[in-house]
Design a protein around this nucleic acid. Sequence first.
DNA 1: TTCTTCTTGCAACTTAGTTGCATTCGGTGT
DNA 2: ACACCGAATGCAACTAAGTTGCAAGAAGAA
Lengths: 149, 149
Amino acid sequence: MCHRCDYETLLEENGLNAGRNRMRVLEVIGDNEGPVSATEIHRRLIRSDPINRVTVYRILDLLVENGIVERISGEGRSFYYGLAANENHRPHPHFYCRRCGGVQCLSPGSLTVDSEPLLQTFSGRVETVAVRVVGICAHCTTSVQGKIS
Amino acid sequence: MCHRCDYETLLEENGLNAGRNRMRVLEVIGDNEGPVSATEIHRRLIRSDPINRVTVYRILDLLVENGIVERISGEGRSFYYGLAANENHRPHPHFYCRRCGGVQCLSPGSLTVDSEPLLQTFSGRVETVAVRVVGICAHCTTSVQGKIS
DNA sequence: TTCTTCTTGCAACTTAGTTGCATTCGGTGT
DNA sequence: ACACCGAATGCAACTAAGTTGCAAGAAGAA
């Protein structure tokens, strides 16, 4: 997703030292187009060098706490992780494929929401308004292989 | 959520016979304002009469398959269930409380989305466009009790 | 009643994530 | 070089939510 972000300074701006594993996790997230699950991040990391899955979870927690990475919940039971919005990345909606479970980023301008009426009437604190588009992704609509019958 | 829905006919319209447990599950979902988790549904049902949690899961699957109930994924790792949109219930956005994990229904008109630009450009199949508002619910903002320190 | 199908329960399993504790690693000071 | 300290990692065990296989029970049709 990003080759304009300097992960090292991103970490150090937040008072985290840029250890090897943190960098590796950020690279996987940043290189992927669209959010990735923790399991998938772990799977990719162990291909190059062994790392414990707990370590991955802990690094992800840390990055989310510090606002470097954004945790979004998919259609399934697991979380997905993407680079948080910053000056290089505007907030944008996500597309969730019902078939393969994958998540894609949509372009920031593709959907516009008018949340004024809500903000005027809602009695709690509204922090984010996210749009979630659900359907079947381009890949899954074309490749019908994988169906058993 | 609903006293205008006749669960019995709702089931039979879909070719499902209206057994006692199905009715009970639907009543819990319909009586609650806002979506409920499977665990919570189970918890409430066993108060009146024992029922196995697997049975609850299976009934929920069935209801979702038949479009009677809608499964939405919360901020956490569990699913929430609400009555699906029909002539009595317009589709509406949901509010997710970061603190207590609860989900509330918002009024259908409180947010409007313009999805035209997306529909013109997206190459997969778009089925639903849902708006998810995240923040702290009214109850959690006022009652700060529960914090340990 | 008997047969068949639908429904339920139980136990075991899976997936995703969490926690506690011990070990190791990277510095800092002496 | 040595000891020390906190941060980072790994391992094992645990939890929560959901799923699967199979056997037993209810309910309707013949």
